[in-house]
């Protein structure tokens, strides 16, 4: 597997496996992640996958070497990752996410439509019609970075991030779409909201979604949203 290494501060290194959002690169990210799941190193604190990268946070004190810890880590990773190969892909898990688009739940739907010369309904049809791949979880607990969105509804991040975005909000940033699991600040354009909970702090894994999952967005009405929410809170 080919990669480059670069520091992310004095206690972390980023393994770069590509420079694009693609299912092929996602599989590489997944393989490198699995490698760290299956092998324990006392100097590795944790790893954090990105679209085309895996960051490895390490403890510089645990590295016994005459060289600087970073140099030693780079040598170790270079020899360890040489043998990591991408396996044949298995059937992805499909997760359905109901979304109530527009209105107060999606204050930027009009903006996204205008930006692309479409009607709001066309944006909804395109967004809900797509098949999506979860590339990574990050930014907030259980927040999925999702690929596969049509470029017809792409829109740049807001120039000034919002200070508060309600949990469940569905947004667009550039060519990416995502769902906010908890209330948080952020710069995405909001087009709708889901009643499903994505952050499960008491679950075996604290995230509903995982890298490699397939997502299907299903448009629902305000009434259906309310019914869903009642059931979720039961």
């Amino acid at each position: 597997m080919e990669f480059t290494l670069q520091p992310l501060g004095d206690n972390s290194v980023i393994i770069e496996l590509g420079d694009d959002i693609s299912p092929d690169i996602q599989r590489k990210v997944k393989e490198v992640s699995s490698f760290f799941d299956e092998h324990a190193f006392d100097w590795v604190i944790e790893y954090v996958p990105g679209f085309s990268t895996v960051a490895v946070f390490y403890d510089p004190i645990k590295i016994k070497s005459t060289k600087l810890p970073y140099e030693h880590v780079c040598e170790e990773l270079t020899s360890l990752l040489k043998h990591v190969k991408v396996k044949q892909d298995s059937e992805p898990r499909v997760v359905k996410i109901p979304v109530c688009y527009g209105g107060e739940f999606g204050p930027d739907l009009e903006e996204v439509a205008k930006h692309n010369g479409l009607s709001p309904q066309e944006v909804i049809d395109i967004h809900a019609g797509g098949e999506y791949l979860v590339y990574m979880i990050g930014f907030a607990p259980g927040f999925p970075y999702i690929g596969g969105m049509s470029e017809k509804i792409a829109a740049p991040r807001r120039k000034n991030p919002r200070l508060k975005i309600p949990a469940g909000s569905v947004g667009i940033a550039g060519k990416q779409t995502g769902v906010y699991p908890i209330e948080t600040p952020g710069g995405w354009q909001l087009i709708g909201k889901t009643p499903r909970k994505l952050f499960l702090p008491n679950g075996a894994t604290p995230s509903l979604l995982q890298a490699g999952d397939q997502i299907k967005f299903e448009p629902i009405t305000v009434e259906e949203f309310q019914r869903w929410e009642e059931n979720e809170n039961d």
Partner: peptide, 17 residues
């Protein structure tokens, strides 16, 4: 536009403004 990736304690990032 950059691809999202890990950040660290003390990372200085710059939004477009």
């Amino acid at each position: 536009e950059m691809l999202s990736e890990a950040v660290n304690f003390g990372t200085i990032q710059v939004p477009s403004e």
